[in-house]
Design a protein around this nucleic acid. Structure first.
Lengths: 213, 213
DNA sequence: ACACAATTCAACCAAACGGTTAAACCAATT
DNA sequence: AATTGGTTTAACCGTTTGGTTGAATTGTGT
């Protein structure tokens, strides 16, 4: 039995969303040009309108996918382990690696936050809820077992996500600044993403540790 | 003797930079229209070009001022106290309050970071160095006195700045999301900025505490 | 009051922008 | 081969955009 091949529609649409993910991550919503999105996808502009819709529709498709993949990756990594500290390590690691999908998610979300979520579609909200849920679950479990002290889950989430998205996204700034101002920058500004994840893991676990145990 | 009054040039330029700070914070560089900048400042567009220059020049003037003021505020607050923990409290408080100048600095810098610092002028770099210096000094002092353990200063900076800028900037998102998805959000997502600052202070001080003391 | 410099203005401009249209092309079915 | 539906295209379009210009207005000094 032969399974029906994927329609051209899905393939072209995916190609467009792939390309648009890069362009929106690089330029932001207003900075990205529809012509550019089409060129990056290797299609004619009208194809893009046919396949997905107007500029906003493309953006929504991108951001929904980017957040869904982020949540998928995070939840999968966290679900692989049982121990709450390890869950937090896994959570942090996805953000720290800044690989694949996360390379788009960080700049896109930083801009979205800066604009008060103006261009965030309804479909993205549930995905954000999944992220919050993954970390929250691990923190509550750690508290129940006496390993962690009671903390504001959301602030811990902000600390992890904020620090790592900012660290990865500002690499070009650091590199540029270090050339002009070597007196300000040293090796601690240029640790690997992996090492940054370990530093954040260390700091966060120390922050939430229940020392009264 | 009569001191010469401030020239019209300085007053109009300041008015433009004030207004532009708001518009750029709200819309970002590409999203802000020059017409809009002029309207917000209550001047004719050509006046804006005469007083400051093209769109990029206005942006540079804004970001340089916003960062200088941020660094001024932070350094002044930190310099008022001698004790290293209190310095960190003061540092965090400036970001947490999200008042005045910081309301512009957070969204502007989040976007700038998302774009790899593409529109960051040379003049802004020294100001960023001042910020890094203020926190770094306090951390090193705490380490010398045995109160803090050795940590990556830059990562701690990322944690503080990242969490608080993200928290304040994403308030509209939280509010909107909570209306549609009350099952995801609870009171810990809506603590005051002051309380958020206290939470971050608590977490950061716990993270860097030297428990071997 | 006058002259000159500084500042602001309304109107204008070419290019860029997001979006549209009818025709051409392609694939599948009969 | 013809038909039909799906997909893509080149060319086009009205509006918006950042920037410019010469005239008008305002400020300053004598």
């Amino acid at each position: 039995m032969h399974i029906a091949a994927k329609s051209q529609h899905d393939t072209t649409a995916d190609t467009i969303i792939d390309a648009a993910s890069e362009v929106f991550a690089d330029k932001g919503y207003e900075g990205a040009r529809v012509d550019e999105l089409a060129r990056a996808a290797g299609v004619n502009k009208a194809t893009l309108y046919y396949q997905i819709g107007d500029k906003e529709a493309v953006y929504h498709a991108v951001i929904t996918r980017v957040l869904a993949r982020t949540a998928d990756e995070v939840c999968a990594a966290v679900a692989e382990v049982d121990e709450c500290e390890e869950k937090i390590r896994r959570f942090i690691n996805i953000f720290a690696r800044n690989a694949g999908n996360m390379r788009y998610a960080a700049p896109i979300m930083l801009r979205e936050v800066a604009s008060g979520g103006r261009n965030l579609p309804e479909s993205a909200i549930a995905e954000m809820g999944r992220l919050l849920g993954a970390l929250g679950e691990a923190l509550r479990e750690g508290e129940r077992s006496g390993l962690f002290r009671p903390v504001n889950e959301f602030m811990v989430h902000m600390m992890i996500v904020g620090s790592l998205m900012l660290y990865s996204a500002n690499e070009p700034i650091r590199r540029r600044n270090a050339e002009r101002h070597p007196e300000i920058y040293n090796e601690q500004h240029f640790i690997s993403n992996e090492e940054a994840g370990e530093q954040v893991t260390d700091l966060v676990l120390a922050a939430i540790a229940n020392n009264k145990q």
